[in-house]
Write a protein that binds this DNA or RNA. Sequence first.
RNA 1: GGGGCUAUAGUGUAGCUUGGUAUCACUCAUGGUUUGGGACCAUGGAACUCCAGUUCAAAUCUGGAUAGCCCCA
Length: 479
Amino acid sequence: MLNHFYSFMVKGLVAKKSDDFSAWYADVVLKAELIEHTSVSGCMVYRPGSFAIWEALQRFLDSEFKKLGVQNAYFPSLIPESLLTKEADHVEGFAPEVAWVTHGGDKELSERLAIRPTSETIMYESYGKWIRSYRDLPLKLNQWCNVVRWEFKHPRPFLRGREFLWQEGHTVHASEESARQEVYAILDVYRRAYEEILAVPVLAGAKSIAERFAGADTTTSLEALFPDGKAVQACTSHYLGTGFAQAFNITFLDASGQQQFGHQNSWGFSTRSIGIMIGVHGDDKGLVLPPRIAPVPVVVVPITFSKDKEGSQNVLSVAQDLCDTHGWHLDNRDQSPGSRFAEWEMKGIPVRIELGPRDLQNNTVVVVRRDTSEKAVVSLNEVAQHVSVLLEDIQKSLFVQAKKHLDASIVEVSSLSELKDVVEQGKIGVACWVDSPENEEEIKKVTGAKSLTSASEKEGMCVVSGKKVSSRHYFGKSY
RNA sequence: GGGGCUAUAGUGUAGCUUGGUAUCACUCAUGGUUUGGGACCAUGGAACUCCAGUUCAAAUCUGGAUAGCCCCA
């Protein structure tokens, strides 16, 4: 009896998503074969199941970046200390979590090398050499790479690790206006990646002064909400101003022969997005993948019987045909149907097609959607059409569900005590405030909430000082 | 940043109090029977996180390291 109980626990998930989100999350990323831990804390293996999701995101983002005139390049992962420390605010922000290379073999290096926590400094050294004239601008480069940030907080697969994958775009513009325009254009590409590809609704706005990127003039961000009521920063797009240009001597002669500093942006989107998608869509049976990023959108599970040799033979050949024709995945492993169903559910494959002799007699198949578990008997002639409509519908419906939850979780508040209540209910508060590190600290102390990103302006009283203001911000518990 | 819990095969575990051949199940491999929601039989493979100490003897006791998890800030 006990053993039976255990074997069930091993195969299913250890916790319900609604009971214990953290335990559920830690378990689902392992059981869906997305992640493997290594012996270095915070450094994880992205198994094929998760890397394929990353590749789908790369395809979308990369093609959108190119539409905006961005080219890909690659800069080294090691940054000399003297270079990393050139921009004062930037070093200060990153210093505590930089990992260093100090030796080559047994020999100590004359200057230690940082493993990039981000690539501003190494890229801008080159930018300074390349840019001479306004005709060289805008310069728009992106790189797909890894970065290392030696965090001491508890690592979580995808959401926080010491090494992660991302893209970082770094552009230089002749004017502030041109740079700022791009910041929002990029933020919109990111929004579409979340909403259209990952089916995750997000809040877009600007970060508070305290939460700004180290060395940036303005940081814009997307924020998502987990089912447990905690918000997550989904990605950022910064206007850096001319601070880095001054530190790295990125200057150009304008049309009138005047020397000017370049206006710079940097923007990044990381594998954290995968974790956000998992947390938002997954359920008690495992992962639920939006069709657009599912490595396998449709799996066909044939069911055969040794007593019915002819029927079974038919089943196999029809299943094979379906997969050959539509590029679906055939799972004809010698395992009971239930076990195969459960595995594909754990992995979040959007649509499963069940096919046995009984179906073939009627020229039908059973089509099951992962998000709702709804089963439909569909004629063989119409299955391709049915599935393509279904995939669209799943994609849309996942977004709609998540959007409902997000919308229902946003509450306007006009005092710190209201904000505290809202946050304790696992919701996000929108409050008027005067943006300052002191006010932010006060809000955090009283309510436990961090500022997330700015909301649309509206007249009201600052929740800390009572001053009349129109700037508003989202606040919530956060990862 | 502060506090707590845990570590035994691929996974989940028993054993630890009282030191002496490491338990069970799933998984895996092979063969056979099976297959409409986590099949079964037979045979086989696979583990004490690491480093030190105590001891005739350490999974077990002691110290340290590492990793995972939880709570608070």
